[in-house]
Amino acid sequence: MLERSVRRPRTAVLLLHGGRSEGMAPPARWNLAAARMRPFTRAILGATEGHDVLVGRVRYRHRGWNGERADAAVDARRALDELELLAGSVRVVLVGHSMGGRAALAVAGHDLVRGVVGLAPWCPVGEPVEQLADRRVVLVHGDRDRTTDPLGSRDVARRARAAGADACAVLMSGGDHAMLRRAGEWHTLTTGLVSGLLGLTPLPEPVRRAFEEGRDPATSD
């Protein structure tokens, strides 16, 4: 679903909301996981206004990841293929929360993708990272998250660097999985990361230094 359609976009942002580990039913028209991404969508639309950036949301056919089916990743890859037919070889940044973060990481090897912003991403042990080579990846995780493990983000960032990605994990002090605590800071940081990865503005300084030095930045206080 397009939030902003640009006739000749130079770049694009696709947002992917969270979901469940299992669930074959389609998401409801209104669901909390999608609602969590609306403030991020509005912030990104505002930050990219006037820059020929297409902004859209990935629609899932099922509520869950569903094991080896990886349904959310299948839908994300389909959305990228459709975007390529619509707009050509635009540079894409993916922004995904929780299950959407896992899907964004899984499809980052697609030719269009240049960067990934994972918000409290679901990163199981041993998740593949080879597809992240030559991509720029920032994973943001609250230290009070009780749904997905912040250590999973750090592990993926570390292994992604070894695989040839510019990658780091930012730990947000006091942040929770729903991104309600310090909500404004989640929105501001995410918008800054997206604008930086698109090349519209400099990356936030701690992330820029982390990329240069091949490490994770200090905790966001």
Rank of each mutant, 00 (worst) to 15 (best):
L139H: 10
A70K: 11
L119E: 08
M24C: 00
A72R: 01
P124E: 01
C123S: 12
M179E: 12
L14M: 08
L94H: 10
L139N: 07
H187C: 06
P128A: 04
E22D: 10
G164L: 00
L189Y: 11
V95W: 06
E22Y: 11
V116M: 09
A70Y: 02
W65S: 02
D52F: 02
V156F: 03
W186G: 10
R20H: 12
A103G: 08
A108H: 01
P217F: 01
F40Q: 08
P204I: 04
R36M: 13
A35F: 08
P206C: 09
W65C: 00
A87Q: 11
D71A: 05
S173I: 14
G126K: 04
L32V: 14
A183T: 14
T219D: 15
M37W: 09
L197M: 15
H62R: 15
V129R: 02
E68H: 11
E68P: 09
A183G: 10
G174C: 08
E3C: 05
G67L: 01
R77H: 11
R61C: 02
V95Q: 09
A70R: 15
P204T: 13
H187S: 09
E185A: 13
P150D: 10
A103L: 02
M99C: 06
A163L: 02
T219W: 11
A35I: 08
L2Q: 08
D145V: 07
R135V: 06
T48M: 09
A76M: 09
R78A: 13
V194S: 03
W30S: 12
E185R: 15
V116W: 05
G96M: 07
G192E: 12
P121E: 11
G23V: 02
R77D: 10
R136F: 05
V95D: 06
V138F: 03
G196R: 07
G46D: 13
R158K: 12
R29V: 14
G18P: 10
G199V: 07
R114E: 15
T190I: 04
D52N: 09
V90M: 02
P27T: 04
E212M: 05
T41W: 00
A33T: 14
E68L: 11
A162G: 07
A165M: 03
L45Y: 07
L105S: 06
V92L: 07
G100E: 07
D149E: 12
A108E: 00
S195E: 14
D149Q: 11
T219I: 11
H187Q: 15
H17D: 15
L200G: 05
L14T: 08
R144P: 01
T188V: 14
D221K: 04
R78Q: 13
G126H: 03
L85S: 10
E205V: 14
G118Y: 15
R36T: 08
R77G: 09
S195D: 07
V156A: 07
R29T: 13
R215G: 03
V53R: 08
P27W: 03
A218L: 13
V55I: 13
D155F: 02
A163R: 03
R161N: 01
P9H: 06
V140S: 08
I44W: 12
